[in-house]
Design a protein around this nucleic acid. Sequence first.
DNA 1: GTGGAGTCTGCAAGTATTCGCAGTTACGAT
DNA 2: ATCGTAACTGCGAATACTTGCAGACTCCAC
Lengths: 140, 140
Amino acid sequence: MKESIDLTSKLMAQGYRLTPQRMMVLSAIQKSDNHISAEEIYAQVVAGYPCVNISTVYRTLELLKRLDLVTETDLGGGRVRYHPADKGHHHHLVCQECGRIIDLGETVLASLGNRLHREYGFRADLKHLAIFGRCADCQG
Amino acid sequence: MKESIDLTSKLMAQGYRLTPQRMMVLSAIQKSDNHISAEEIYAQVVAGYPCVNISTVYRTLELLKRLDLVTETDLGGGRVRYHPADKGHHHHLVCQECGRIIDLGETVLASLGNRLHREYGFRADLKHLAIFGRCADCQG
DNA sequence: GTGGAGTCTGCAAGTATTCGCAGTTACGAT
DNA sequence: ATCGTAACTGCGAATACTTGCAGACTCCAC
Ligand SMILES: [Mn+2]
Ligand SMILES: [Mn+2]
Ligand SMILES: [Zn+2]
Ligand SMILES: [Zn+2]
């Protein structure tokens, strides 16, 4: 239950409350190994607590993002996907032609992040990005 | 009218047709100096051709993107914005705290693009990106 | 000219996500 | 305990965009 203590303290520190809905949304994200969508989170939550509303799921996701507990990434499938922040940062190259997704380590964007900070004083959020383009097999 | 010839040839080359709707959408984007939204394009088009539908605007934008005549960028205002590709590539740093937008030259992402091509054979679409984070004044 | 085969469009319905509101709940202070 | 304030939630409506469909328009072959 380490992450539930983490959640509690992060919430309390800023005047937020720990509700069953919030616990269940975070736990659904933790449980899923891959990137999970809001609809999929909602389905899991509803299974154990039937009258939650999907707008509560979206509001909770917004909050968890702000607390840096989950990352949100648009991988191009028409719906955004979520990932627990403590399972490691990484990025993706998404081929717009064939849909292939190449995984990238966190470090690939590190030097860009450093440069943006050095030259512009800007702290870029480079925790979980998708970069679109064409993979090696799909160049025309 | 150089860009209209450009549009015609690019369309014809792939079996597409040149319609008044398509000309007007592209011209609305060319006319606007800043980044323009679909709704704003629609308003301009409707002024000269009242029965066009907004879904035609969206479909045309999809096409113009595929032809590399316009770029699409999510600058965080809840609606995506469009920019003519021939007015020069560039990028933006968007502060999630205060909304400030810092403009970036095309070159800032060039070495990342080269690296992705060298190491992964991936041709990243780095024509007009928004990178989110916190500006120098908003670090806490 | 006529007749397809596509291509394109308006319209209406659908999807993913957000927002306003009014009732409920949690927490701290008395 | 009880009261007040603020946070939180479900619900329904709104928003930005997408999609299916059926009619209209183009282009080309004959
Ligand atoms: Mn990922
Ligand atoms: Mn721009
Ligand atoms: Zn590919
Ligand atoms: Zn700022």
